[in-house]
């Protein structure tokens, strides 16, 4: 479970100070699904980085299962990311020289999983996103949708507690968008993980049971009982 209290993030841009997050208080239950929406530069990606332990707040605390990510040492934070958090990025962020299977394996490397076991689990993960036949293909040989499926497989292969997705459909056309969203929702339900997603897409936001809207660093939560 995530518990955020008074999370503030400021950084300098030239001579001015940008208040990316201004005292955010937020709780996200285990297995919950939250969509973060807001205008460009509103602080949604900054919030996602804080939740993923990629950046530290200027003030406040971000607790994940009792660990304050704001105060953990760099080594422990790296371990938390390796074990508990899966990321899906807008630009897929796959290693262009590695095959789909090898890209998925990169998520298991920091966990010390043996090579044979890595290969087996990566193949299973790719099979679960419908890419069982494309294990040996490099990203350049796959469509955008397929590349994002590889990225999803990479995020889920280590069976994390949390899945963070930053505009996962931002670079995809409409049909691909729906396809990827179906995959993500199915996996969320199947694995029971906490799923937090940033999106500009209102049609996706409407499908979320809980919506966090960020404007000028402040968060407003909207519950959607119909979703």
């Amino acid at each position: 479970m995530y518990t955020l209290q008074g999370v503030t993030k400021q950084y300098r841009r030239g001579k001015s100070t940008v208040h990316a997050l201004a005292g955010v208080d937020l709780t996200i239950e285990d297995g919950g699904r939250l969509v973060i929406q807001g205008p460009t530069g509103g602080g949604k990606s900054t919030l996602l980085q804080m939740l993923g332990g990629l950046d530290r707040p200027t003030a406040g605390s971000i607790e994940l299962d009792g660990m304050d990510l704001a105060r953990l040492s760099e080594a422990k934070l790296t371990k938390v990311r390796a074990q508990n958090i899966g990321f899906v990025f807008q630009s897929f962020n796959l290693i262009p020289t590695l095959t789909a299977q090898e890209n998925v394996e990169t998520a298991l490397v920091p966990l010390g999983v043996k090579a044979a076991e890595r290969r087996r689990r990566a193949a299973e993960a790719l099979d679960s996103v419908g890419l069982g036949e494309r294990l040996g293909h490099v990203p350049g040989e796959m469509s955008g949708g397929q590349q994002q499926r590889v990225a999803i497989a990479r995020a889920l292969v280590k069976q994390p507690k949390v899945l963070l997705a930053d505009e996962p459909t931002g670079n995809l056309d409409e049909s691909m968008r729906d396809e990827i969203m179906e995959v993500l929702e199915a996996l969320w339900k199947e694995h029971g993980l906490t799923f937090i997603m940033v999106t500009h897409d209102s049609s996706i936001a409407r499908r979320a049971p809980r919506l966090a809207t960020i404007r000028k660093g402040e968060v407003t939560i909207t519950e959607n009982a119909a979703a």
Binding site: G52, L54, E74, A75, T78, K79, R81, A82, Q83, F87, F89, S91, N93, I95, P96, T106, A107, V109, P110, L111, R154
Partner: peptide, 16 residues
């Protein structure tokens, strides 16, 4: 930068 940043996000230590 993005490649190495991604690996670090996945939990790769700086040393690796």
């Amino acid at each position: 930068v993005r490649e190495f940043g991604t690996l670090k996000a996945l939990g790769w230590k700086s040393g690796r």
